[in-house]
Simulated scan of single mutants.
Amino acid sequence: MIFKAYYQETKHQNPKREQTKSLYLEADDEVEARRLFETHTSYNLEFLQFLDEKHLAYEKEHADFSLTEFK
């Protein structure tokens, strides 16, 4: 499953929509996706969105799609 994570780079300031960034990650479920994000980044996770087939196809076509791999 592919998830899109919306985040702020800092946890010490109020979130501002203009500073929201996103990354794509692969996980078996939402719980694992949250764990991966929190374990491997120090970012403030705003929202985690599951991408179904149609949404994923759209993101690949219209966004700067690159799957983030955590090691």
Rank of each mutant, 00 (worst) to 15 (best):
F70Q: 07
T68N: 04
N14P: 11
E30W: 02
S22M: 10
E69F: 09
I2R: 03
Q19L: 15
L51D: 13
N14D: 15
L51F: 13
K60S: 03
S42M: 06
Y24A: 01
Q19H: 15
Q49W: 03
A5R: 08
Q13K: 09
F47N: 13
A63H: 15
N44H: 06
N44S: 09
N14Q: 14
V31Y: 02
T10C: 06
T20N: 05
E61A: 11
S66K: 10
T68R: 05
K71S: 10
F37I: 14
E53W: 07
E69R: 14
E61C: 05
R34L: 07
N14E: 15
D64R: 03
F50L: 03
L25S: 02
K16V: 13
Y58T: 08
L56S: 08
L36T: 01
P15W: 09
E59T: 05
E38I: 03
K11W: 11
F47A: 14
T10R: 04
K4M: 12
F47M: 12
S66G: 07
E32Y: 01
R35K: 14
A33Y: 00
A57W: 01
R34M: 07
K4Q: 12
T41V: 02
F50Y: 06
Q13Y: 11
L51S: 12
E46V: 12
E59Q: 08
L36D: 01
D29M: 00
F70C: 06
N44I: 05
A57C: 01
E69A: 10
H62F: 10
K4Y: 09
Y6W: 11
R17H: 14
E32Q: 07
L67Y: 03
N44P: 03
S66T: 06
K4V: 11
L25H: 05
E53D: 15
H62N: 12
T10V: 07
L23K: 14
Y7N: 06
L36K: 05
P15M: 10
Q8G: 10
D28N: 12
K71W: 07
S42R: 08
H55Q: 15
E53Q: 12
E61W: 02
D29K: 00
H55D: 15
D52K: 13
F37K: 08
D29F: 01
R17E: 15
Y6D: 11
E18V: 13
T10G: 09
Y7P: 00
E69P: 01
S66A: 12
R34W: 07
F37M: 14
I2F: 05
I2A: 02
E18I: 14
F47I: 11
S42K: 08
E32G: 01
E46F: 10
Y7S: 01
P15K: 05
L48I: 01
A57N: 04
E61M: 06
Q8F: 09
L48F: 00
H40F: 04
L23D: 09
L36M: 08
R34Y: 06
Y43W: 12
N14M: 13
S22Y: 14
